[in-house]
Design a protein around this nucleic acid. Structure first.
Lengths: 226, 226
DNA sequence: ACCTGAACACCGTTCAAGT
DNA sequence: ACCTGAACACCGTTCAAGT
């Protein structure tokens, strides 16, 4: 909701990749994924669209850079003295918080399989799952299960935010909408969906997410070590 | 790789929602997500772009209809006489196969949170998890964990296919590319990614996916019943 | 009721021309 | 080396006009 209506105070600073990425992040945060256009971006930076292409290859390069700029600082903040389970929990929580406050990160992250912002998440999870004592043979399966789950939640978060913005609703009004739709499905064919209509309106996204992470970690290591 | 170069054999048939959706699916299958444009679609249907809007609200409506047309038949093919675990396994396998042969489904599915194609998956999983004997309090968590995992894999599949198509590589060449990139990360900071470089090139996507499903189901129900 | 197709607003990207 | 801004190709969507 912050408007950040800066008319044109960045005359002095020469255009740089960092400035461009920072401005892109502001646009994405304020107006959603559709808010980032080279038109809007060049206006905010007081240049022409062509200037941006000197510092950035294309739009997907810009999105990747914006995503990485938001995500990479997270992994410097992880305390080293924690059990693997705690570390996974902490990293997941931080990831959720940034995806929650920058919903576009969820969809950009998914769109870069095996590339830089995502590999940071992979590596972090991989090291902790290894430290958990999972046998080398199972490490890939367990880490990628965890990663796919996180990407799924991230993508849903992005989709929710995008739809809510299009419908000009806030998050809770949007969930009310979903809840109402679920309560109208025929009881006969959709008993489960019907039963969950109330739940979806009142649940805590963050808590649900972390419970899912724990559930997967528990499945990965039947011999629990707290 | 099927070209399906039908010049214009559909003169007779009056335009209908079903025809439009079927043509849209063909375009998506043959040329990927970017292949579906109202321009290309109206050319294939031998009409103007405006005609399509009489039967379809807008592009997202069209995508939702195409996605649902591909997904909904799946859930009529589930045999009733199976244990919950088998049913979840079977449904997941079918879902994977359709997402694998129609990669765009992965991204469209994610973009419709709580809406029609996705609710079918939710309901199917929900009924089986309920039959599994999970307590009412835990049903939401376990089902949504499973669903988010499936959506994560679906999204990655779509992203892989999209990138591979842009780079004009087939799937295995694309994975070779990722594998090579992973093998070049600095050993010091990315030991796990490095170790998995070979794995990512040779793994079986479908098998990994189903192993992940089992892992989550196992976590959901510590008291295994086969 | 259903279709036509030109027109509109907007997008990512390019490139000759400037400094 | 870096920036300018007009131009290009293409997109989703609209709408007056037809049948």
């Amino acid at each position: 909701m912050k408007k950040t209506t800066i008319p044109s105070p960045r005359r002095r600073s020469a255009l740089s990749r960092e400035h461009i990425v920072a401005a892109a992040i502001e646009l994405l945060d304020d107006h959603g994924e559709s808010g980032l256009t080279f038109q809007a971006l060049s206006k905010r930076l007081a240049t022409g669209p062509g200037a941006i292409y000197w510092h950035v290859a294309d739009k997907s390069d810009l999105l990747a850079a914006a995503c990485d700029a938001v995500i990479s600082p997270l992994f410097h903040r992880l305390s080293a003295d924690a059990t693997p389970r705690e570390a996974i929990h902490a990293a997941s929580g931080m990831l959720f918080d940034t995806i929650d406050s920058h919903p576009w990160v969820g969809s950009v992250l998914t769109s870069l399989p095996g590339r830089m912002p995502m590999v940071r998440v992979l590596e972090c999870l991989g090291q902790q799952v290894t430290a958990l004592g999972v046998s080398p043979n199972d490490q890939w399966t367990h880490v990628s299960t965890l990663l796919m789950y996180i990407l799924g939640v991230a993508g849903q978060n992005a989709a929710n935010a995008k739809l809510a913005m299009e419908m000009k609703l806030d998050r809770s009004a949007f969930l009310d909408d979903v809840s109402l739709a679920w309560s109208k499905f025929p009881e006969e064919d959709y008993p489960f969906t019907r039963r969950m209509a109330e739940r979806v309106r009142t649940h805590d996204d963050r808590e649900d997410f972390l419970t899912g992470v724990d559930l997967i970690v528990r499945g990965a290591l039947p011999t629990a070590r707290t």
